[in-house]
Simulated assay, not measured.
Amino acid sequence: MSTYKLVCPHCKGSIRIRTSEGQHICLRTAYLQCTNEACGATFRAQFEITHQMSPSGMPNPQVQLPAAPTSIRREAMRNDNETQLDLLEA
């Protein structure tokens, strides 16, 4: 399972998710906090499921996502060897 490394755009320290709330079945709003006490920046972010990489074995009829283009699927395959994906890193 992959995890995301959230990086503060100010100090480049780690960011943690303080709380999040569902807006839609495919959208969450998250409130983030830099773990560097000297920085202390806080943020609001949205995480959205935009494409389906492969079909579900238990499809929900309420979920209507487009299939990911080949270029996105190829990129995901290339990144499978990395242990952690960077998010918000410059």
Rank of each mutant, 00 (worst) to 15 (best):
Q64K: 15
T50D: 09
E82N: 09
E21L: 05
M58Q: 10
Q46I: 10
V7H: 02
C26G: 11
Q23N: 14
Q52T: 03
Q62A: 03
I17K: 05
E37M: 06
Q52L: 06
P69S: 03
G57E: 15
L88R: 01
K12H: 12
R28T: 07
Q84N: 04
T3L: 11
Y4N: 15
T42L: 05
T70H: 11
P69L: 07
Q62R: 15
C39E: 01
R28S: 09
E82R: 13
K5Y: 14
I49L: 09
N36L: 03
S56T: 13
F47L: 09
H10F: 08
D80R: 07
S54I: 08
A38C: 05
S54P: 00
V7N: 04
S2N: 11
R73T: 14
Q33E: 11
L27V: 15
M53G: 05
S20P: 00
I72P: 02
Q84L: 12
N60P: 05
H51F: 01
R28V: 09
L6N: 01
M1H: 06
R74S: 11
Q52G: 04
I49G: 01
P9E: 09
N79G: 05
S2V: 09
F43W: 12
F43P: 00
T35P: 06
P61N: 12
C8Y: 01
P59G: 02
H10T: 10
E75F: 10
A76V: 09
T29K: 15
N36A: 08
L88I: 02
N79I: 13
A67T: 04
Y31F: 14
E21P: 00
Q64M: 08
R28F: 06
N79P: 02
G13T: 02
A45Y: 03
A67I: 11
R74N: 14
S56H: 05
A30H: 07
S56P: 05
R78T: 02
I72C: 04
R28P: 00
L65S: 01
H10P: 01
S71F: 10
Q23L: 13
I49F: 02
T3P: 00
